[in-house]
């Protein structure tokens, strides 16, 4: 407990008008905890962290922590992060997005950032819904579920966000849930330390919107569902696709070495100067 108090004092903004905007029991707080613990464990200076978010319940996270924080436009956080990182590569850039933020309005930026392999970490809080605007369907809302804009049933297929990141070329992709808080801590730590574009998809619950509309129970019950649905990457490798249908595969999905954009650009600078010198 003393340990927790120490972290709270070190990283939260006390002059910010708490209480926060989130519903009691929301999973975003658990993601915030994991983020702080991972940063503390690695030992980054607060000055070197830039935390950038889009718009949504998850987008409200940066305001509460004592880093350089930037709350941008809906879906565009990664583009701002690209500018920050390339302008000052010594900064550690972390982006926080909701599922709608990352793969609906911001889907294009997301895949292109993964393709470019710019060194930054994208944390995606996937609660299967547009939380902030009151429970409309998102590209991560599963087929057959209900939302305020699909009250008859969602007839669209959902994105598998982590698989999308893998296919788009991300150097590191991990998936966790807010139930598996320890795993989340370690996934974030790995992602932050990764040179290149890293992604952590955080499966969370929005009990007040998605949960209520689909009768999935309380926050605690929804977290128990995360526990029951989760299978590790190792176990999933031995399972058939049909068996994996309702499952959430957790762990490190990809971790590979790729040329990092800033390093490559440094070479471009050298070549450009050679050309100029001629």
């Amino acid at each position: 407990m003393a340990e927790v108090t120490k972290l709270i004092h070190k990283y939260l903004r006390h002059d910010k008008k708490f209480p926060h905007v989130w519903c009691p029991g929301c999973g975003i707080g658990i993601m915030l905890g994991a983020l702080i613990r991972a940063i503390d464990r690695i030992g980054y200076e607060k000055d070197e962290i830039v935390l950038i978010s889009g718009i949504g319940c998850s987008g409200r996270l940066p305001v509460y922590v004592d880093f350089n924080t930037l709350h941008t436009t809906h879906g565009r956080a990664i583009t701002f992060a690209t500018g920050v990182k390339l302008a000052k590569p010594s900064l550690k850039v972390i982006v926080i997005m909701g599922d709608g933020d990352a793969v609906a309005i911001g889907g294009n930026h997301f895949i292109h950032a993964a393709r470019r392999n710019i060194d930054m970490t994208a944390l995606i809080l996937n609660n299967s819904i547009y939380g902030m605007t009151g429970g409309q369907s998102s590209p991560a809302t599963p087929y057959g579920m209900r939302s305020t804009t699909t009250i008859y049933s969602n007839i669209e297929q959902s994105f598998n966000i982590s698989e999308l990141a893998v296919t788009a070329g991300a150097a590191f992709v991990g998936r966790g849930t807010v139930y598996h808080a320890r795993l989340l801590d370690s996934l974030m730590e790995k992602a932050f330390l990764k040179q290149g574009f890293s992604v952590v998809e955080v499966i969370s619950h929005c009990h007040t919107q998605f949960g209520r509309q689909n009768r999935l129970g309380t926050a605690v019950q929804m977290m128990e569902q995360q526990r029951d649905q989760a299978v590790t990457v190792e176990k999933a490798a031995r399972m058939k696709p049909e068996e994996l249908k309702e499952k959430i595969v957790i762990g490190v999905l990809v971790d590979k070495e790729l040329p990092v954009y800033q390093d490559e650009y440094e070479k471009i600078r050298e070549r450009a100067k050679e050309v100029m010198g001629r």
Partner: peptide
């Protein structure tokens, strides 16, 4: 960048840095 929305986003980010 991938479009002009991203272009201005990156420009603002770089300026903040």
């Amino acid at each position: 960048m991938e479009d002009e929305i991203a272009s201005l986003g990156a420009v603002i980010g770089a300026s903040l840095a």
